[in-house]
Design a protein around this nucleic acid. Structure first.
Lengths: 242, 242
DNA sequence: CGTGGACTTGAAATTTCTCAAAAGAAGTGG
DNA sequence: CCACTTCTTTTGAGAAATTTCAAGTCCACG
């Protein structure tokens, strides 16, 4: 019986989706097999190399997408070139701004990334027909709003030291491998991106990383690989409660 | 015939709502007369004086509300007391965080404010039954997310001068009276609140206000009343494109 | 007319940035 | 496998912006 159910599901799930990393948790998890089948007809998988743009600030929105793996940075640029990263997106996040014709920021792959691209129309039709999809997107928007506001506190009120620790804390919490209080991960961003995320210069980021290393809060190998021996010490350094 | 329609509507619209400032544009605009009638049974109007809290950081959410008039500030506090205002809400915004048990920030009346309070259950039931309500709240969440991300650029990358000008620009754009390029309004926030919104100290805010005044970008009367003779000059000072 | 609160102004201290140079990685072609 | 180049990161020192601390002013209110 178990087997029979699996076979039935298997027949219902489109081939391309069957092995998809984002099928559970992403927007596809909010669809019925029939809806998923219909959507998958218009979907296409795309690789985006680190540094390549998915969509530019001010460009018109013709498609939405799901992140299958990798990290995408969302950023805003001022006329004179000053830049601020306003969010990071991880799998299985949905990317795109519903109900608006053009993008208010650019989305660029921070690491090599794979995304599943959907035509704008297909998503908008589904959003009308599947309340569970709208619910999921609404929830994601609220979660991103919470994250954005947390980051506003970081940008407005924390010291450079706390900012860098907050960034490491954020990445640590999006990286699975974690044993007890210990955690290790690769940074998805360069020093320059980290600076743009924290509202600092790369020199200040570098100095604060060095300081955290000398204080024993983190270990650094190869610039990008970080080990955190004690997550609570990192939280303290980040000015995070408890 | 025109009259007849009006009478019909009039009969359908609950008495308390008939004269409500927020009935158009707020969440009530997304409801059918029957839904509105049902909701109004559980709704209550409440005055909140400037400085009073509507909900505190970490408190459990037992109700949602609509702003009828006035300005509410949303803020986060760190353990050591550092504070950051993460958003301002104006009529007819909806206040509250759907799908979450407790508030991640405090909401406090910046000016004398009136709100219409709804029990949590009533809103959550309606959100299931009225897709147009969920759509409206989803839209507001996305708009707030856009605003939050715009503000992240302000917090992370602008100078003190640009920050203060950006704040004045924000308030100017939420105040109607505006003739040609000229605009005037009362600030809904004290210098101390402005500082907490901009990630500055009150002294820096004060100095930058003085500088904008001496440069002729704004006029100040009675500390709180601002006149902007030329909105474009203000936009320039705020580092806003065009 | 004095008091309290909000705001402004001044001067010194501190943090962060800027500019400059050095040190490490990573890739290239001989 | 070794120079060679390039790009990223680190480090240092002085400059600039913002904060801190300390008065001082303004205004509403009793």
């Amino acid at each position: 019986m178990d087997i029979q159910i699996k076979e039935t599901q298997s027949r219902d799930i489109p081939g391309v989706c069957r092995s998809c990393e984002a099928r559970h948790g992403g927007i596809c998890s909010a669809l019925t097999p029939a809806q998923l089948a219909e959507l998958s007809k218009h979907a296409s998988r795309r690789k985006v190399e680190a540094g390549n743009e998915v969509i530019g600030q001010g460009e018109s929105i013709t498609s939405y997408s799901s992140i299958l793996n990798g990290v995408v940075k969302l950023s805003k640029v001022m006329a004179d070139g000053r830049q601020q990263i306003v969010g990071l997106q991880f799998a299985p996040d949905f990317m795109g701004r519903p109900f608006l014709g053009e993008s208010r920021m650019s989305a660029e792959a921070a690491t090599d990334t794979e995304i599943c691209v959907f035509p704008r129309r297909a998503i908008e039709r589904l959003m009308r027909d599947a309340p569970s999809l709208e619910r999921l997107l609404h929830n994601q928007a609220l979660q991103e709003l919470d994250d954005a506001r947390d980051w506003m506190l970081t940008l407005g009120r924390k010291t450079a030291q706390e900012k860098v620790a907050s960034f490491l804390w954020l990445i640590a919490n999006h990286s699975d491998p974690e044993v007890g209080d210990r955690s290790f991960f690769d940074l998805p961003l360069s020093r320059s991106d980290i600076a743009d995320f924290l509202g600092l210069t790369i020199e200040t980021v570098s100095r604060q990383m060095t300081k955290l290393r000398k204080d024993g809060v983190i270990q650094i190998e190869n610039n990008r690989h970080i080990t955190v021996p004690d997550l609570e010490r990192l939280a303290n350094a980040a000015g995070i409660d408890q």
